[in-house]
Design a binder for these strands. Structure first.
Length: 233
DNA sequence: AATATACCCAACCGCACCCAG
DNA sequence: ACTGGGTGCGGTTGGGTATAT
């Protein structure tokens, strides 16, 4: 077992104070993002480097777009999840100003439920036997089940949707493999993800962003097929 | 009004990957 | 080729808030 990334003793944990935030912002503005391990000490923070990195990436970065997800962002997340599975960082990489944590939370709290309400198994994006799709399910994507529909969630779903409890019609565990027959899984959703490189993506990563692994891209025929991401036709 | 329950989100944890030495 | 440190990622947790009873 490897050593913890930092000495846990004498380290602050939990919510960040405004002073801590300011120290981190000031330091990064002066010195940029660098060695996270040494940053806390240099910045005068009693935090471990991982905590600083997370705070910066998920909350303090100036280019973050905070607030509700737009409808097109929701659609994009759903489509990318069908394509990529739980690879939140990859998904977030296609949503400017969004973080993997934010996307993951939004998926778990809103979109999962939305798909379940539509009768779609969120794990593999196929129509679920237990929850047959509502009529015009796809049309409800942005209406009845839209974010905050706690009413619907409570009426139509057990309180804690278990991760594997919902068995889909066919046992396809890999989300990406569900794409083999997309038309069955996502009615009315255009999954024709023609992704390639509008500026940096995918071959040239942004500053701190990993490129898509070639192997990942290779395994997906949609990658590198066109210069634009045509999603909403 | 008080209590219980559900929901949301920030943060933590541990593992995996990458890369320099 | 191997090793260990640094970093990134995904899963999970805990606390605050909203809603229901």
């Amino acid at each position: 077992m490897r050593k913890p990334c930092c000495d846990k003793q004498d380290m602050n944990k939990g919510a960040w104070s405004k002073q801590e935030d300011q120290k981190l912002i000031d330091y990064i503005q002066k010195h940029g993002e660098g060695c996270w391990r040494t940053l806390p000490q240099a910045a005068g923070l009693l935090r471990c480097g991982k905590s600083c990195r997370l705070r910066w990436i998920n909350y303090l970065r100036p280019d973050l777009k905070r607030g509700n997800f737009a409808e097109d962002e929701e659609d994009l997340i759903i489509k990318l999840h069908a394509l990529l599975g739980n690879r939140w960082s990859l998904i977030a990489g296609r949503l400017p100003g969004r973080t993997d944590n934010e996307v993951k939370n939004y998926w778990n709290s809103h979109l999962r439920r939305k798909l379940i309400n539509m009768g779609i198994d969120p794990n593999n994006h196929r129509i679920s036997c237990k929850n047959p799709p509502l009529q015009n399910a796809a049309n409800t994507l942005h209406s009845s089940a839209s974010s905050g529909s706690k009413e619907n969630a409570k009426k139509n779903e057990p309180t804690k949707p278990n991760h594997d409890g919902e068995k889909s019609c066919d046992l396809v565990s890999d989300a990406a493999s569900g794409l083999e027959d997309e038309s069955h899984s996502l009615p009315d959703l255009n999954l024709d993800l023609n992704i390639s490189m509008p500026s940096p993506f995918p071959c040239v990563p942004k500053d701190n962003q990993k490129p898509i692994l070639e192997s990942e891209a290779r395994s997906d025929p949609h990658f590198f097929s066109s210069p634009t991401l045509v999603l909403f036709q």
